[in-house]
Simulated assay, not measured.
Amino acid sequence: MNYTLNQLRIFLKIVEKQSITKASEELHLTQPAVSIQLKNFQNQFPIPLTEVVGRQLFITDFGNEIAVIAKRILKEVEGINYKLLTYQGELAGRLKVSVVSTGKYVIPYFLSGFMRENAGVDLVMDVTNKSRVVESLEENQVDFALVSVLPAHLNLNKIGLMKNILHLVGNPKYFEKVKLGKKSFAKDTPLIFREKGSATRAAMENYLTEKSIAVGKKIELTSNEAVKQAVIAGLGCSIMPLIGVNNELERGDLKIIPQKHLPITTTWNLVWLRNKKLSPVASALLDYIDAKKEEIINSNFQWIQRY
């Protein structure tokens, strides 16, 4: 056996993506380069690691067992590298964060300075919907999660980062005035929702329910960006986080449509399991945020005050 760490990494990515093409894209390698490394790795085993049925790549049972071992090997190698940096006096390790999709406009600003100061820290950030974020917390897959609505069934610690403000927005060319009310809401004005499981959708539905607002036409889309583009195109209006539409408001592509009892205000919270033993890297991040939070907000989010 004479396989390399690079071959292990490539094989693991192929197993994860179930596709040579997708693996090559994520690894920023050409498809032929990935195929050659897979072939060289396979040549060291008398039992197939993969098989192709039709045009679909499948991982064999043996291949899946090798992938489990490969993952363990690479984790140990990573641990050696972090241990070396630690002995050299550097903060080193992996930081895993799960972020609800709109949080991608927030969390990078609270991480960038920390990452610049600590070259030995690797960041893994998963941007997804609230359901997946809560699942990653429940399964202890991450150090931290960024949410605007706390999952009530989990015992969590939290740090409030900043306000999350949601307004009704529309393209002024199509929706200069919209009235959300029990009787006066225009039935020919579609209201655009995020998918079920989204915290933005939950906040929007809670508002509509509390104010007894009946929705006429309803459109459901699966990302904040998709909702934004749909509103710009004139498909309808939506209640959206201000943090994600700043540029569009500045350009005049979108306009805040004032409504009674709006905006909705929640808080962006960095959360972690209360009984979790935080790594030195995770603890250092909390210290950094505690010291720098106000400076980060003042430097990057003062524009919110204009609205």
Rank of each mutant, 00 (worst) to 15 (best):
K163W: 00
S198N: 04
N164L: 12
M162D: 12
K183G: 15
A186R: 14
D143I: 11
F144T: 14
M162N: 04
L191D: 04
F144W: 10
F185P: 01
K196F: 13
N164G: 06
M204A: 08
P151R: 12
P190H: 03
L156E: 10
H153R: 14
L168W: 05
G160T: 12
V149H: 11
A152T: 13
D188G: 01
E210G: 00
H153C: 06
N155E: 12
L208I: 12
G197V: 02
A152G: 01
H167G: 07
L146K: 12
R194L: 13
F144N: 15
K196N: 13
K179R: 13
L180S: 07
E195R: 10
V142Y: 01
I192G: 09
P172L: 06
D188L: 08
K179D: 04
A203P: 00
A199L: 05
G197A: 03
H167S: 13
E210H: 07
E176G: 04
K187T: 09
L166T: 10
H153I: 06
V169S: 00
V149K: 15
M204F: 09
G197T: 05
I159F: 07
M162W: 05
I165G: 09
A145D: 06
V178L: 08
A202G: 01
N140Y: 11
K182W: 00
G181W: 01
L208T: 14
E195M: 06
I159T: 14
S148T: 14
E176W: 03
P190E: 02
A202M: 08
